[in-house]
Design a protein around this nucleic acid. Structure first.
Lengths: 361, 361
DNA sequence: ATGAAAGCGCTAACAA
DNA sequence: TTGTTAGCGCTTTCAT
């Protein structure tokens, strides 16, 4: 009943020092393992620290050291398991090194990126890992960030061509070729592409698609390249438009898995069976993709490696080599064949009952 | 080639002040909208701030104000879309209020929770939103946290019974009853429960299961309550053990959706058809649950509301009412019927081809 | 081996 | 209306 009121003062070095009749400097030195402290004193300090439950104040420390041991991570869509897996890998690698992660999710709103960066700058993060670049307009801020000696790693995006910084990406053109060639090998000829936004990685996947088509001597129908987006709803809508414009396509390569899932939904709603009437392939290897209604064939590259490498590079930049050289790590993509394109099926599941088969109505 | 080297000094208030020939205090006052500044000066300052590209240093500010405008968020499993959705909602609500989020993911390792909390304490966060409590041993730290005047909200967990703090939870016993009654209504009698860990919310779901069984006059077989976990693999293993011990169960209520998905996998692997041979129901409404091989029937409660309320409460505690009263917000669960239990089916998808139906081998 | 002093960048009493 | 002074809690020369 009484014990409320003002929060109890927190234990500072000053207090520990006072209790021991030594100077703050001594406490600091002990806690930072400086050699010039007598063993006796060191023990006394350590004991008192323990007894008082002293915790260092990271804010004060940051102010002095000009290092926050905090990194900003900006991702475009946390609802996509791809980014979650990347963030988890980053967290695993950085957490143990004593770094905290300030997480920023762009969600729907690409314009947020700029003020997220401003916010991270104000907070004096030691670096930024960027998996978004939704907004193209922030090159100046990124450059400024680097001029301030902060780390910067672009992951899964290869935008900002002029910017010299670390990058961890996959071979997006190969992603496009892998997906498209797979469809071609299965005998498809009228293959559409649900393209993503005007970002480098999406365009490269598109380019890979075109390259594979050309190489196979296949013409690309005018309405086959549908501008879409990278979320389920966008894929759904793009596919609907595609079916309108080119009802006879037999296969779709979607820019990523959420879009592919949207396309499958659209297919079902328009009475198309997947993969019989329409083959669908995505990219990014979304979680539970093997458990989907029709297990999704996709192109996959390691999220774990993406995150781990990003962590490694940013640590390297911050702690050892602030001025480069800058690396460009490429995580290779591989085809992951499941059921959504028919043909050889891997990871398919046993038959289910008719009950499930039949439509709800 | 030359422009590398030491990072350019960053612009401080001191610099802005010097350029203008005024005091730092003046700059500070302008930037914090104090009334006692002449309009002319205010404009001059603002202009110079703009011109120099001054950004406030949040670290220094935090040290003075003893407020970091940063909150810690600890979740037990980022790979579960449930928590991602909650975090997104929190981020949406808090980001606009100027708060940054330090994200901690426990992942596999429950022991991490303690040092995550220590880390957040060192970083002087204004509060912690906890969606984990994997480790039960941290009551002392949580209490200490509160004694330091920091905000604390437990979400989706009702552990630490003695601790007076805000809570946003669902009615877990009702979750259990909703799931179990649904199975009973569909005619099932031998219903097993894949229980979660020894946390309050999991036990309550179990209790709800028992209550519904009792109310229906059904005996609960000894081997039907299998201790498991909350991730897919754990559900898989628990189901396997269950099939061993009680091959004749016709329905499973899993503590959450990932576990339910694991159970479905186990069912298929042991030649059981879902839902014909085995009905499966989960809890938590995982993302893409409607797109699964067999769309998963589940119990759902709003992640958005969970996150929003948590944000609201912690802001309230930090900015307005540090000493309570503490609220306990209950987000009601509802049944979401899909295909995995048979019976009335909602959200089912149209028939797919035989190709997909047949097993890969 | 230990400590005094200065300062990181900012805010807030309190004067002027 | 503006500025001076005194910290916030810590690290780091530089003395002693």
């Amino acid at each position: 009943m009484a014990d409320q009121g003002a929060p109890s003062m927190s234990v500072t070095m000053k207090l520990v020092a006072a209790e021991l009749g030594v100077s703050v400097t001594t406490i600091s030195k002990v806690l930072n393992n400086h050699a010039d402290i007598g063993e006796a004193t060191r023990q006394r300090v350590l004991a008192k620290v323990e007894q008082l439950g002293y915790r260092r104040n990271a804010v004060a420390r940051s102010l002095t050291l000009r290092r926050t041991h905090t990194l900003g991570v900006i991702v475009s869509d946390l609802m996509h398991s791809f980014f979650v897996e990347v963030v988890s890998a980053i967290e695993a690698a950085l957490g143990s090194r004593g770094y905290g992660l300030l997480l920023c999710n762009l969600g729907e709103d690409p314009a947020k990126e700029r003020w997220q960066l401003e916010m991270l700058l104000e907070r004096q993060v030691d670096g930024v890992i960027l998996a978004s670049t939704n907004a193209q307009r922030n090159g100046d801020l990124l450059r400024y960030l680097q001029s301030q000696g902060k780390g910067l790693v672009l992951i899964d995006r290869d935008d900002h061509q002029g910017l010299r910084c670390h990058r961890v990406v996959t071979d997006d053109e190969k992603v496009g070729r892998l997906a498209t060639s797979h469809l071609i090998a299965l005998g498809h000829r009228r293959i559409a592409h649900l393209a993503g936004p005007r970002l480098v990685h999406a365009r490269r996947r598109h380019r890979g698609y075109l390259a594979s088509m050309r190489q196979a001597g296949l013409a690309v129908g005018d309405p086959w390249g549908v501008e879409g987006g990278v979320v389920e709803q966008a894929g759904y809508e793009a596919a609907m438009r595609l079916f309108e414009a080119a009802p006879d396509v037999t296969a779709i390569f979607a820019v990523n898995d959420p879009a592919a899932i949207g396309a499958m939904k659209a297919a079902w709603e328009t009475g198309r069976r997947v993969p019989d009437d329409l083959a669908v392939i995505g990219a990014g290897d979304i979680a539970h993709g093997d458990m989907l209604r029709v297990p999704l064939t996709t192109v996959s590259w390691s999220r774990d490696e993406l995150g781990r490498e990003a962590a490694r590079l940013i640590i390297d930049q911050i702690e050892a080599h602030p001025d480069g050289p800058f690396h460009r790590v490429v995580v290779p993509p591989t085809l992951r064949v499941r059921a959504s394109c028919g043909g050889a099926v891997d990871g398919g599941l046993p038959p289910t009952s008719e009950t499930v088969m039949r439509r709800a109505d």
